[in-house]
Write a protein that binds this DNA or RNA. Structure first.
Lengths: 351, 351
DNA sequence: CTGTTAGCGCTTTCAC
DNA sequence: GTGAAAGCGCTAACAG
């Protein structure tokens, strides 16, 4: 009927006594510091094990004295999604201060490998942890590895560099996100047959490429009545996206679905809308895109957009901080908690 | 280019000096403890304000000495969703121990107001915080209020008692969840017209009633071609749900959608399947239900179920702990972080 | 009403 | 290699 989830609260001193050594030695073993005879190490480890001893984080935190420094390396452009992440970090100020954590924002051109790598190099050695929205490029990979070698904990944020030695990736599985988008477009089209348009920023961006890959997978295997048109590259710009899409809609009268892989949403919506106005008899185009912003929220409510695939920016911001903190403290990461889910957002479950 | 989110790390002593008082007095003011002249209070408050001082949580935690005790009051039956919550709490053991938090599970019959209230009464005074899966009933409300009066922090979990003085509710907005289910059924049916079946545990349960309410709202306003049949009450039991649904499917040949509000999923799936087998020519029934369990996961992968509305049980478990901790410490709650979202889960974004 | 003081359980010098 | 001891910034007695 009642059951407890926690173990007796021993202290370092208890372990020290039980292992027949001093506090300092237990501390050394606990943190794998050198200068302890292997035999002693074993004795201490045993005692820790036997009691399933957990050091008190609060005490550890207090004793170390100095505050921790984390840096967030973010794109400098006016990307609403990134701005949301920054805003959510801002909301954590009190929480951060109460834990003596210093978070610094560093903006840079994350789309230029050399510039990004240079920014990362300047951080070397000064930070306990670095979160970076990373471009997947050899130069950047090297810079990340250098940071790791210099002793910083590194997490990639939103966009990963899997080949680097970063400690953790905070972001979604973009192939699965693309698959989800495909399933939604396919299902919401509702059995009609026709063509599907895809607008991306650039197929050179890893996340965009992966999303398109997943999208095509699902379309090919599950919706044979729908044919996917060649990807339009709108560079995440409104005007360009609008023009390209408007032209495409003009050429194909039987477009029933649209997947907007990146930003440029305003332009995409515009193109859709103009068409709807001018060509009365035409079927509604199912429109699926990414991220919940002020704009996509409005489009969802208006029924212009049907669904948004979203990675909760608040969650990403907080997860990045928590993961860096856990890594810095040597605590285990709650993987389930820090995993970023692929959210499907429709009008009625808007957050 | 670089910007810091945190403020200088002052200490209580600094504030004391600046306000011309002692440590103890600052501490009293900080915790609104009595026995300080109003004028002194003001002076101290000013100093705190001026420096936007944040006490160091680690130090506070360490100094108070004793561990905190939290109780989780959960249903005693074999409900997979509740079991998941318990499992996720179990995964936090190390995290909890490292913070000297004791979490105890108390199981009881949460569907019997008197029994539940009695269980709550026994906890009075012994816990810093209590999380409870609550039935919305006057007796339970009174028990919750008593706990609050006795000094415990109380959060309702999954199922709320809005009229009580509980400090927080950790769970989803069930009306919105029902609306989401409605939108999904309506959209996934894909323009066909016909009837929609609804299977619930009982309309007496607040969460079920709210979901049905939201579901009907959307169906009535947005999908006039679909008519919702009277709710079947399956009591969350497999057999009963199967029988009722099978009979209904027999009587109405034009059922195109199904909303399963609660549990009994196995039975519901069975009824759908049998029908599919026996009546070859019949249209696929769009099936939307709640929660991602081993069973619903399988059904989604098999294509029997089309979507699950889910409230992340891991998130609920951790949010409940974090909220109780923040409340106990007098820290602000990160509302955005602790909010439970309505997740739409389809095959391709299964967590 | 206000101040003094002894820890809380670690980390970190500095000695041996 | 190992140990002793001085704090870290608070809280909670207790004393005035």
């Amino acid at each position: 009927m009642a059951e407890t989830l926690t173990t007796a609260a021993l202290t370092l001193k208890d372990i020290a006594r039980e292992a027949g050594v001093s506090l300092a030695t237990v501390d050394r073993v606990l943190h794998n510091r050198p200068g302890v005879r292997p035999d002693t190490v074993r004795r201490v480890r045993d005692a820790i094990e036997r009691n399933s001893f957990q050091p008190h984080v609060a005490a550890a935190e207090l004793a170390r004295g100095r505050a921790r420094r984390f840096a967030f390396v973010m794109p400098s452009g006016p990307n609403p999604f990134m701005q949301q992440i920054e805003a959510y970090l801002g909301e954590m100020t009190a929480w951060l201060s109460a834990r003596r954590l210093n978070v610094e924002m560093v903006t840079t051109d994350v789309f230029d490998a050399a510039v990004l790598a240079a920014s990362l190099e300047t951080l070397s050695g000064d930070y306990d942890g670095v979160a970076v929205v990373a471009l997947d490029h050899p130069t950047v990979r090297a810079a990340i590895n250098d940071l790791v070698d210099a002793g910083s904990k590194v997490v990639t944020l939103v966009s990963d560099v899997p080949s680097s030695r970063r400690h953790h990736y905070v972001g979604i599985d973009n192939i699965a996100a693309g698959r989800t988008a495909g399933a939604l477009v396919g299902r919401l089209v509702g059995g009609r047959s026709g063509k599907v348009a895809v607008v991306a920023g650039s197929q050179g961006l890893r996340d965009h490429a992966e999303r398109i890959f997943g999208f095509n997978q699902v379309m090919a295997s599950e919706f044979p009545d729908l044919s996917v048109l060649p990807v339009l590259e709108g560079r995440d710009e409104d005007e360009r996206s609008e023009q390209l899409l408007a032209r495409l809609l003009g050429r194909h009268a039987d477009i029933v679905g649209l997947y907007n892989v990146g930003a440029g949403t305003q332009g995409v919506a515009q193109a859709l809308n103009n068409k709807a106005l001018s060509e009365a008899g035409r079927d509604k185009v199912v429109f699926v895109g990414h991220d919940v912003t002020a704009l996509t929220r409005r489009l969802l409510l208006q029924g212009v957009m049907d669904a948004a695939i979203s990675q909760n920016p608040g969650h990403e911001a907080r997860a990045a901080v928590r993961v860096l903190l856990a890594l810095a403290r040597g605590e285990p990461i709650l993987r389930e908690q820090e995993k970023i889910r692929i959210d499907i957002v429709m009008r009625d479950n808007l957050p």
